[in-house]
Amino acid sequence: MGDSGGMAVARATVTELREFAAEAGFDGVDVDADLGGGWSAVYCADQPGGAAAALARRTGAPVLTVAYLDSDVGFVEGATFAGGGWKALLNRETAEDYEIPVDRFPVQAALVGARDWAAAGGLTADPEGVRAALTGSEAFAEDLAERLLGALGIAPAAPGEEGA
């Protein structure tokens, strides 16, 4: 078994995102990263449902959250300040082993949401890269989350890598 917990990525400083995450009910925020271009990430032990929308309202910018199930599966939520949102599932084959109904996370809807989310953040998404992350399989869902961030136009950083 691997990590549980998750991460949040937003256009905010690391300090702001840590503060906003605490206010939104994130538990155990212990690591953060400056992703460059005004984007930051925080990593936590637990996060409440609907956290992406709460953080988007607080930051005034698009937010992406990923909640991990034993590092095997990632539940993605994207939200914008204007109220747009989307959901996706990382490691779909593994999710089926957990009997998670993957049909509740349609890839096409997630692709459209991801494109709109990236545009709202001033980013240019790579549709094929997003599709590959959403349909791919890896030993750790965190690896797919990094690929997804890259495909959305955000250079991911390993947890704790300030200024990476």
Score class of each variant (00 low, 15 high):
Asp3Thr: 15
Ser4Asp: 08
Gly5Ile: 05
Gly6Arg: 02
Gly6Val: 02
Val9Thr: 12
Val9Met: 11
Thr13His: 01
Val14Asn: 03
Glu16Phe: 04
Leu17Val: 06
Glu19Trp: 14
Glu19Leu: 13
Ala21Ile: 02
Ala22Asn: 11
Glu23Phe: 03
Glu23Val: 11
Gly25Gln: 09
Phe26Lys: 01
Asp27Asn: 10
Asp27Trp: 12
Val29Asn: 03
Val29Trp: 02
Val31Met: 04
Asp32Trp: 02
Ala33Lys: 01
Asp34Ala: 08
Leu35Ser: 06
Gly37Met: 09
Gly37Lys: 11
Gly38Phe: 06
Gly38Asp: 07
Gly38Cys: 07
Trp39Arg: 01
Ser40His: 01
Val42His: 00
Val42Met: 01
Tyr43Arg: 00
Cys44Thr: 15
Asp46Phe: 07
Gln47Val: 07
Ala51Trp: 02
Ala51Gln: 09
Ala54Val: 09
Ala54Cys: 07
Leu55Ala: 05
Arg58Asn: 00
Arg58Gly: 00
Arg58Phe: 00
Thr59Gln: 01
Pro62Gly: 06
Pro62Arg: 03
Thr65Asp: 06
Val66Leu: 06
Asp72Val: 08
Phe75Lys: 01
Gly78Ser: 08
Gly78Gln: 09
Thr80Asn: 04
Thr80Tyr: 01
Phe81Gly: 15
Ala82Thr: 08
Gly83Ala: 05
Gly84His: 00
Gly85Glu: 11
Gly85Thr: 14
Lys87Asp: 14
Ala88Asn: 04
Leu90Gln: 07
Arg92Pro: 04
Glu93Asp: 14
Glu93Asn: 13
Glu93Tyr: 15
Ala95Asn: 01
Ala95Val: 03
Glu96Ser: 07
Tyr98Val: 03
Val102Ile: 12
Pro106Leu: 05
Pro106Gly: 11
Val107Met: 12
Gln108Ser: 14
Ala109Lys: 13
Val112Gln: 13
Ala114Cys: 05
Arg115Pro: 07
Asp116Gly: 10
Asp116Gln: 08
Gly121Ile: 04
Gly121Ala: 11
Gly121Met: 11
Gly122Met: 10
Gly122Tyr: 04
Leu123Ser: 11
Leu123Gln: 05
Thr124Met: 05
Ala125Met: 08
Asp126Gly: 05
Gly129Gln: 09
Arg131Leu: 13
Ala133Leu: 08
Leu134Tyr: 10
Gly136Ser: 07
Ala139Tyr: 15
Phe140Leu: 15
Ala141Leu: 06
Ala141Glu: 01
Leu144Ala: 12
Glu146Cys: 12
Arg147Asp: 10
Leu149Val: 05
Leu152Val: 04
Leu152Ser: 09
Gly153His: 03
Gly153Tyr: 11
Ala155Asp: 12
Ala158Trp: 13
Ala158Pro: 10
Gly160Asp: 07
Ala164Thr: 12
